[in-house]
Deep mutational scan, measured.
Amino acid sequence: RIEKCYFCSGPIYPGHGMMFVRNDCKVFRFCKSKCHKNFKKKRNPRKVRWTKAFRKAAGKELTV
């Protein structure tokens, strides 16, 4: 099963990425440490230029 990165919305293939479980049992999956570090710094994915959330908000990503 291919999961989605919580921060950048990129695909996470089986055996890859990192799973972060908070004390309230909420699960966050990250494709790379870059995404996990930005999440820990409480960065907003919509303001980080390389994420899909930014591209969609800025009108750069074509949605079908």
Rank of each mutant, 00 (worst) to 15 (best):
K60M: 14
R49E: 15
K34C: 01
G59S: 10
V48A: 07
V64F: 04
R46E: 15
F30D: 00
F7D: 12
C25H: 08
V21P: 00
K56W: 11
F30V: 06
S33M: 08
M18K: 02
K26A: 10
N23E: 13
E61W: 06
G59Q: 11
K34R: 03
K37C: 04
K47D: 15
S33Q: 10
N23Q: 03
V64P: 12
D24Y: 00
F54V: 12
G17E: 11
N38I: 01
G15T: 05
K26F: 04
R1I: 13
M18N: 04
S33V: 05
K40W: 10
R46D: 15
R55E: 15
R49W: 04
G15R: 01
V27W: 01
A58G: 08
S33Y: 02
V21C: 02
T51Y: 03
K47C: 09
F54G: 12
T63S: 12
C25S: 12
F20P: 01
M18W: 05
P45M: 06
D24L: 01
Y6N: 02
K34V: 10
G59W: 06
T63A: 08
A58S: 10
A53L: 07
K56Y: 15
A53V: 10
T51Q: 10
M19Y: 07
C31F: 00
F39K: 02
K41F: 06
V27E: 12
G59N: 07
K56L: 13
R22Q: 14
R22F: 11
R29A: 10
R1V: 11
K52H: 13
G15E: 09
K42I: 06
C31P: 00
F20W: 09
K60E: 15
W50Y: 11
Y6Q: 10
F30H: 00
S33F: 02
V48M: 07
H36W: 03
F7W: 12
K40F: 12
V48G: 07
A53D: 15
Y13A: 11
P45F: 04
W50M: 09
M18F: 11
I12N: 00
N23W: 04
H16T: 12
W50L: 12
K52M: 13
E61D: 10
V27C: 02
G17L: 02
N23H: 05
Y6F: 08
C35A: 00
F39H: 06
H36T: 04
R43D: 15
C35T: 00
